[in-house]
């Protein structure tokens, strides 16, 4: 009968909501309770250093090129020993959409995303992070990696003496 069906439907609904009254709320009371995001969470961007303490960033502009909202800008210069580095490096976090394309594009693992999501500021200009705000004193997610041991040939070490590199071949001695 329709009436009985309808009554059953209403009572089933009431029973369902009753169960939810007794259930624990899923709310997280944010400022007091904070959830711990996954290590891969994409939030505040940092510039990491290599294990020797040198800056990893070689100012190649790839992150800036990959950035869909153009929030990364920098100026390249030549540092000591002929190494490229950024004279200044700027990320405008009021524009950043935390897509992580910059970190993907980086050939030296210098630019990385961190799980620190609390980067609100009262003044919007405080959201423009300069190089000294971005640069950290650790290696981030790749503690072993040192770009100049794999590449940068002729800049930090003579040719043919890098990690996993074969000695140079004397092209003149290759004659048959």
């Amino acid at each position: 009968m329709r009436v009985i069906d309808d009554m059953t439907a209403i009572l089933t609904g009431l029973w369902t909501t009753w169960k939810h009254i007794l259930r624990r709320p899923v709310t997280i009371q944010y400022p007091e309770e904070k959830r711990i995001p996954s290590p891969r969470y994409r939030a505040r961007i940092i510039l990491t250093r290599d294990p020797d303490g040198g800056e990893r960033c070689v100012a190649c502009y790839l992150c800036s090129a990959a950035c869909p909202v153009d929030c990364i800008s920098m100026q390249a210069e030549e540092g000591e020993g002929g190494r490229r580095r950024a004279a200044w490096f700027r990320i405008n976090f009021s524009r950043c959409i935390f897509c992580g394309f910059c970190a993907e594009a980086c050939p030296t693992m210098a630019i990385q995303m961190t799980p620190d999501y609390e980067i609100c500021r009262r003044d919007v200009m405080d959201l423009v992070f300069e190089k000294e705000d971005l640069l950290v004193e650790h290696c981030g997610k790749d503690p072993e990696y040192n770009f100049y041991r794999h590449a940068g040939i002729g800049v930090t070490q003579p040719r043919g003496e890098g990690e996993g590199e074969k000695p140079t071949v004397d092209v003149r001695g290759l004659m048959p």
Partner: peptide
């Protein structure tokens, strides 16, 4: 009570 029904606080 409405909040509890909706699993809120």
């Amino acid at each position: 009570i409405l909040a509890w029904i909706q699993d809120r606080k």
